[in-house]
Design a protein around this nucleic acid. Structure first.
Lengths: 330, 330
DNA sequence: ACAACATTTGTAACCGGTTACAAAAAGTGC
DNA sequence: GCACTTTTTGTAACCGGTTACAAATGTTGT
């Protein structure tokens, strides 16, 4: 592998001139420029970026901390981040944390050791979150209320309220809830919205109508069984994400319940699959790609040292009514 | 940010001793070791990895070229790669190529410029593929037959043959096929298996029974309309992936066709969602995570310069019969 | 006490770029 | 042609680690 010194020798100039030819061509005469490019071509010279990064103290890399890469919502957010990073000439390091704070720590370490310039955390903030450390540039995407560092998010409570209000407006009074893990910040925010809507409609909150899941298909199926066993079954269910809703639909249909005639169900996220479920799922579309893009933009502002910027963005959601919700049997 | 020289000064020793304390502690006396660790703690010293990488000419990073990160199959493969990379202390750079060879080139460039030590390509090999360049260490995961560089894959033709044979053994004679894009290597391999099974059963291949898709849900729905319009409709459909199968099921059900009574359908990939579709989908499970792990192991062997190793691994698939396939109406 | 050897430490060059500063070359006006 | 400005180029230090080699120190046996 040839180095900048090889090129300089080939041309008969100094390494400084070659370096300038590559990064500040306007400071080099056209004649030298031509000879240098010829030599680069001839020697197949490729600048060693490790050296450049070392000298410039910039890795041109950001890290994404993602709890689970094999999750459609997250991978769409990542897509959005990639878009922006690409245009800024930054690389994206993937940190699949598997919800292990050990792994998370090791990725944050990359920033502390200069291998990366900043972090985008996809996990919502909670007390045991690793971030922020003062000297790590970080942004939270898809977070929740009260994140103590820059964040881009949706209004989870408000979105959950909209879904619940929709079910209430259809005439439902007993509305089951499939929640995420109870200490998950999204669960907390969305539960808040669910309760708000009930309160506004004068319906009392009933803890027996809440089944805890963990945002997986399987846990949704599992939760559906909780409702099926109830003597006084809810006429509608709000699932805190689409995967659990789809899991629950399977369970409900297996017991011969018709959706939405016997029981309505609404989800959250608007996965592509939710359009194709039977029946298509009423849900809330998060602007997943936009969340990624906006948080990347915010991170780059921070990396570039722009301090004056707003440090929380709440993006709008879109409530989508499909065929999984209808008035209850009269 | 403190450097190794700050630590050395604090302790009153040379940088060499500090460096050794960190990488070869057995070559340093216990007394020095203790003082050095105390100083590191006091100064909050973190070694600058950019400098280390530069000096060692190793980025400890691999790149994954993935056509579409928001694809469940790929993200599962990535999970597998992550597992192995993590244990080897390597970082994973994500290259979402969006099927653009421009983007692909820029990621391969990372290896040429030393920012990464190797590449795992998830896109199956075809003539316009960027890899391999002689000086880029690369492995193909989820590839196809005749990949001209090290690869880990399944036997696509054989798997497709199994699915088709299953449908034939149920008594189907007219078997529709939803294919991927015709120039996609997976399409080519799987089509081969489909034709083999037909030939073995003495059924003539009928091009009118092939609807071209592009592996998306939407294209599956679209393809289903092709079959619905046919006067002499197939009694079973083999879709080259689960997403198209799920899309097609929606289209078929919308026209009042019962699955599997009126028409059977089988997929390929065994997405988690396929267990939850209505009815659950008969399909072929690719060992997605294993594909990732094995290809990462192979790549690390190459990076470590082990040449004697086998350079193609074909992993077994699992054919899974669920409720979307049944004998045709008699 | 001393030779012989093992252990621990220090010196300084090195990796491959970048860039401040100085010097040389080219251009401009009188 | 000369003084002055502008453009182009070169010299060499620098980034922060690592490591070959040499030197210093410690250990052991007689």
């Amino acid at each position: 592998m040839s180095t900048i010194r090889d090129v300089a020798k080939e041309v008969g100039c100094s390494t400084a001139t070659v370096s300038r030819a590559l990064s500040n061509p306007e400071k080099v005469s056209k004649a030298s420029l031509k000879r240098i490019h010829a030599a680069i071509e001839k020697l197949q010279y490729r600048p060693n970026m490790l050296s450049q990064q070392f000298r410039n103290k910039q890795a041109n890399t950001i890290v994404i901390l993602v709890p689970d890469i094999a999750n459609l919502f997250f991978s769409t957010v990542i897509s959005g981040i990639e878009n922006v990073a690409q245009s800024k000439g930054f690389n994206v390091l993937l940190g699949d944390t598997r919800d292990s704070s050990e792994r998370e720590k090791s990725f944050i370490n990359l920033v502390e050791t200069k291998q990366a310039d900043g972090v985008i955390q996809l996990r919502p903030y909670s007390k045991n979150s690793m971030l922020p450390k003062k000297f790590v540039t970080a942004v939270n995407a898809c977070g929740c209320e009260d994140t103590p560092y820059p964040a881009v998010r949706i209004d989870n409570a408000d979105a959950a309220r909209q879904v619940t209000e929709h079910l209430i407006s259809l005439g439902h009074k007993k509305i089951g809830l499939i929640s995420g893990l109870t200490d998950n910040p999204h669960t907390i925010d969305r539960l808040k919205g669910y309760k708000q809507a009930l309160a506004q409609a004068g319906i009392e909150f009933d803890p027996a109508l809440v089944a805890e899941g963990d945002f997986t298909l399987w846990s949704g199926l599992n939760a559906s069984e909780h409702f099926i066993r109830m003597t006084d079954r809810p006429t509608a269910i709000f699932s805190m994400n689409d995967e659990m809703a789809i899991g629950a639909m399977k369970g409900l249909k297996a017991k011969g319940l018709k959706i939405p005639e016997d029981i309505s169900i609404a989800g959250f996220d608007d996965l592509e699959f939710s359009k194709y479920s039977d029946p298509p799922l009423t849900t809330v579309a998060q602007p997943a790609e936009k969340l990624g893009e906006k948080s990347a933009e915010l991170l780059f502002q921070l990396i570039d040292g722009e301090t004056s910027s707003q440090n929380e963005y709440v993006l709008p959601v879109e409530f989508i009514i499909r065929q999984s919700t209808a008035p209850p049997r009269s």
